[in-house]
Simulated assay, not measured.
Amino acid sequence: MLFVALLLAACTLSAALCIEALGARLRIRRLGDAPIGHRPHWPRVSIVVPAHNEEAHLEPAVRSLMAQDYPDLEIVLVDDRSEDRTGAMVDELARRDPRIRALHVRDLPPGWMGKNHAMWLGARAATGEWLLFTDADVHMHPDTVRRAVDHALRHGLDHLTVAPLLTVRGLVLAAWVGLFTLLFIASERPHRVRDPRCSHGVGVGAFNLIRRAVYEAIGTHRAIALRPDDDRQLGRQVKRHGYAQELLVGGERIRVAWYQTLGEALRGIEKNTLAGMDYRWDIALVGLAAVALAMLLPWIALILGAGWIRWTAAAAIIAIAVGYLLANPPPLWRGLLVLPVGSVVLVYGLARALVITALRGGIYWGGRFFPLEQLRQNTTHNASL
C-alpha cells in the first residue's frame, strides 16, 4: 500500500511539473516577438560584467557587447581578483573601445562574496539610468539590449530578466540541464512574476536589467552581499519591494554555455542548492524527496510493476517528458534519449550538494570558504537594507 501511495504521489508531482511548464510556455513572452519601437531618446545603459579568471571566455563575450546597436551604452568590466590574464584583457579591451571602463578588485572586504562585491563596485562606477548585470561568458545578438530596453519602457517595468539559450555538450548533460530547467520553472514560477499580486520574484544571471533608482531603493547588492544565488535574490528583492518585473525568453539573442561538462555542473550547484532553500534543511530534504519521488519512482515502477501500476508509472513518465519538452528549446530535446539517466544524475547531484554542504558546514565560492552561520545571516527575509 505504501508503494502505491508513493506512486500516486509521484504521478501528482509529475502532473504538477507538466502543468507549470505548460503555463510557462503559454505565458512567457520572447524577447524578439515584438518590433522595436521608435524612440527619440534612449536612456543610458551601463552593462556591468564581473569577471573572475575568465580569460577563456571574456573577449568573445565582450565583443558581443561592443557590437550592440544601442545608442547610449557604457560597459563596466570588473576584474575580480583574477589570477590569470583576465585583468590584462580587461585593460586591453578598455583601450580598444572608449565605452568600456576597467575596474580591478585587489582585495575582498569582509561580509561580501566576490561576484556580488564586483557587481556592486561596477554599479557604483556606472553612469547609466539603467543597469544591466550579465556574466563574462554570455553572448548577445546586436539588438538584444535595444529590444530589452524598449520592452521594459513599453510595459512600465522596473526589472527585466531574460533566460538565455543554454548550449551544452553530450546527451546526459542535456538531460540534466533540461530537467533542472523544468524544476526551475516549477519552483520559481517565472510565468507569474508579471502579476503584481504574485509574490514570486525571479532573476537570471545572464541578463538582469534594472532601473538604477530601483536598484538603489532595494539596497543594491549590499542587501544580498553573501548570497551565492545573487541573480535570483536580486529578482526577489525587486518583487518584495513592490516593483514591476518580467521574465522573457531570449532564444538565439542571448546564448551561454552554462556548464561545459557534467562534472562541472555537479560542482557548480554545490553553492546554490541549500541557498535556494534559504538554508533551511527541512525544506531542502522535503524538496529532495519530492524530486526523487517524481523523477525516479515511476521508472522503478515501470520496470518492476505490472498491470495498472506499470500504466500509472508510464503516465507519470510521459508527464515528465512532456513537461521537459515544454520547458526547453529544441537543442535540449535530445536529452530525452537518456531521460532516466538524466533523472538519476539530477537527484544524485542535488543530494551530493546537500551532503557536501552539511559535511563542510558551508560552501566554497571564488576560492573562499563561507560557513553556514555567516550565510544564514543574509537570507532573503532578513537582508539588511
Rank of each mutant, 00 (worst) to 15 (best):
M1T: 11
L2A: 15
L2H: 14
A5W: 10
A9V: 13
C11W: 12
C11F: 14
L13P: 07
A16V: 05
A16H: 07
I19F: 08
A21R: 07
L22D: 03
G23V: 00
G23L: 03
L26T: 06
R27S: 07
R27F: 13
R27L: 11
R27M: 09
R30Y: 14
L31W: 09
D33L: 03
D33N: 04
H41T: 13
V45M: 08
E59T: 06
D69K: 07
L73W: 14
I75Q: 12
D80F: 12
R81F: 08
R81C: 04
R85Q: 14
A88R: 13
D91R: 15
L93E: 13
P98W: 05
L103Y: 01
R106A: 05
L108F: 01
P110T: 07
H117D: 04
H117W: 05
M119L: 10
G122P: 06
A123G: 03
R124F: 04
A126P: 10
A126W: 03
T127P: 04
E129R: 06
L132H: 10
D137I: 07
M140V: 15
H141F: 13
P142W: 09
D143Q: 11
V145L: 13
R146F: 10
H151N: 07
H155C: 12
D158L: 03
H159P: 02
V162H: 10
L171I: 03
A175F: 05
V177C: 15
G178V: 05
G178W: 03
F180I: 00
F180T: 01
T181S: 14
L183T: 14
S187G: 09
R189S: 02
R194P: 00
D195M: 08
G201Q: 03
V202F: 10
G205E: 02
A206L: 02
I210N: 01
R212L: 01
V214W: 07
Y215L: 05
H221P: 02
Q233R: 04
G242Q: 05
G242S: 05
E246P: 07
G250V: 09
R253F: 06
A257P: 14
Y259T: 02
A265I: 04
L274E: 04
Y279W: 15
R280P: 01
I283Q: 15
A284K: 11
L285I: 15
V286Y: 04
G287E: 05
L293E: 13
L296F: 05
L296K: 07
A301K: 11
I303A: 13
G305A: 11
G307H: 03
A313M: 12
A314W: 09
A315P: 10
A315D: 12
A316R: 09
I318W: 12
A321Y: 02
A321S: 00
G323I: 00
L326C: 04
N328W: 00
L332T: 00
W333C: 03
L336Y: 01
L339Y: 00
Y348I: 14
G349N: 11
L350E: 08
A351V: 11
T357P: 08
L359T: 08
I363C: 02
W365Q: 11
F370S: 12
L372E: 09
E373S: 10
A383Y: 06
S384T: 12
L385C: 15
